[in-house]
Design a protein around this nucleic acid. Structure first.
Lengths: 162, 162
DNA sequence: TTAGATGCAAATGGTTTGCATGCGT
DNA sequence: ACGCATGCAAACCATTTGCATCTAA
């Protein structure tokens, strides 16, 4: 659950945002700022910081509390309320996806492409299922008047005893 | 497993006085009592009542609050704490299954056979996906040291706009 | 009789909200 | 300067817990 510093930028990060200025190519700060601008959110200090933490390291699954602690550790002054606000705003504009696995707390996923999850209840650990391992065979027929908004698959795991 | 109740049972649930004897074979009161005995739970007044409400009408998806209100309406004196206790105990022994769809409240499903769900977010409506409409094609390979405990599929629906 | 069950109320924990102050444009 | 953004603390809500009182066996 602990996160290493966002100091080292993750590998794959630039899926969009053509590099504008040579020396800053691929710089998360830039990417985050563009990301925010693109979706119409003012790039404030805390949104930038949270966005940096969230998107600079590839796919992540965080809870509000986790993100708050990370930000605090990273010496970024943010209130928990703002973390919640930001997570929701990011979700609204499609930057994040909310995953319901544990009735008690909400997880947010930085990977908003179609994919599913593994969840280890005893460890409260949530992670992506490799895209190869397709799980959904065919979508069920929705009842009259409804259409499918999304299909969530959570494969719950337990430690193999032995 | 044994889910299909004899069905025909009036909605009216008069009082806490369980019909004591006579021709009660197949009567939910009986079934519930056996059910409880089988799993080693003492058939107390409130457990009987809650079990009756839950299992006498086929597949159901309830929240603690819903069950509490139903019981109250049915003139069954139960405290909310007991409803929670009972739901959890029933779940532990396999009489119920907990479904995580909405991060905020917990739903309990009386159908504990393998199946999945449709969930209409705007209506907070949860219901089973017909068994025919198999959704899971193949199970993903769990990571080393883990095994699959269960696979939950939630197909989120939205009203078809038209 | 006695372990287990229940009820109430207070405690918890995650999340939200109201409102005064701060900051990006 | 304007208006959204932020922080804090109080409010909220679903759920849990402590403890004294019942009750099924």
């Amino acid at each position: 659950m602990t996160q290493s510093r966002p100091a080292a930028y993750g590998p794959a990060f630039s899926s969009r945002t053509p590099p504008a200025h040579s020396d800053l190519t691929g710089c998360p700060w830039h990417d985050v700022k563009s990301k925010l601008r693109e979706v119409g959110l003012r790039p404030t200090r805390q949104r930038m910081a949270l966005g940096w933490i969230l998107f600079a390291k590839g796919d992540r699954h965080v809870t509000a509390e986790m993100l708050y602690e990370e930000a605090t550790h990273a010496k970024v002054p943010v209130s928990l309320a703002t973390v919640y606000n930001t997570l929701h705003q990011f979700t609204e504009v499609g930057l994040l996806r909310q995953v319901a696995v544990d009735g008690s707390k909400a997880y947010f996923d930085t990977n908003n492409t179609a994919h599913h999850h593994f969840f280890v209840e005893d460890e409260n650990n949530l992670f992506d299922i490799p895209a190869r391992d397709v799980v959904v065979g065919r979508a069920p027929t929705p009842p009259e008047g409804y259409e499918i908004a999304r299909i969530d698959v959570v494969v719950r795991l337990r430690r193999k005893r032995g």
